[in-house]
Write a protein that binds this DNA or RNA. Sequence first.
DNA 1: AAACTCTCCAACCGCGCGGGT
DNA 2: GACCCGCGCGGTTGGAGAGTT
Length: 300
Amino acid sequence: MGRQPCCDKVGLKKGPWTAEEDKKLINFILTHGQCCWRAVPKLAGLLRCGKSCRLRWTNYLRPDLKRGLLSEYEEKMVIDLHAQLGNRWSKIASHLPGRTDNEIKNHWNTHIKKKLKKMGIDPLTHKPLVTNNDNTTDQQPPQAAQTHPQESTDPEPTLSSSTNDASSQTDRNKVDLESPPTMTESKEEERSTLDDAMEAINSFLCSDDVPLIDPSEILVPSSSSSSSSYSTSPSSSWEDNKIFEDLHLPFMDWPQGDFCEDNNSNDSFGFWKDEDFSWDMLINADPVLDQTSASYTGLL
DNA sequence: AAACTCTCCAACCGCGCGGGT
DNA sequence: GACCCGCGCGGTTGGAGAGTT
């Protein structure tokens, strides 16, 4: 079936978002909540397609987002989850409060992959790399393909059968071609290999013993760490553009303090100078907010 | 200081899925 | 069942900033 583009691109803006656009989008969503992304740009007065608005919101403007590098624990979580789920970044992100699939995907590609390779672990299979003269791990070794975690340790079988995009499906098709149908012959053996790899990862990433806890037990850090919104994007830096100072939100007084990065803390998150202002405060502490933006709190 | 290369990440693109008609 | 629409997902890209020569 033919599919129309998400929007007619004529006259619509692309590229980096400006502070003004951010303000409009934030203002609109805080006032009206998330609804029908296609209609958002029109209603919010933005020359963007709905998809662009959704991405901007979910990947950058959402108040519950953490900023900054992933902590060691988060990294370990990502590696562990990737071993189980493969490149299902949204699934992985769902286990890491305040992190987006995009962020995790980027972090994986730029940091974790390298670390794993350095350790001699194939980032695709989470198994030790074959020690032959070919060290190009981007080329998937045949034996790794046979034991790709997505094929064998997927805890959500329904996912693998239905919700895959074209490219990842292509990858899986490739694996299917290379691997015999009886590939899951020994899950226990495979699991122990995986555990070995994880052990190596853990010792590499963090010398201290960090107990693995169930993702559901993870609490979104309150206040400073969960609310920081720091960006290197020149067009969208909240602190630079003082978006919130200019916002005319209907239900709250915006903090006057400047936002700054916490260079001393380990997690490299930012904080608000003015007390410990955070989105959490907005969401959790303001009774007026509760009263006027139930739809907003519902989306967190 | 300038030129060049590398790294990182926000944003885009294209596709599949699910729901509605 | 065919089609349309909105949304979400994962892969890729472009450009800014950092690092190196």
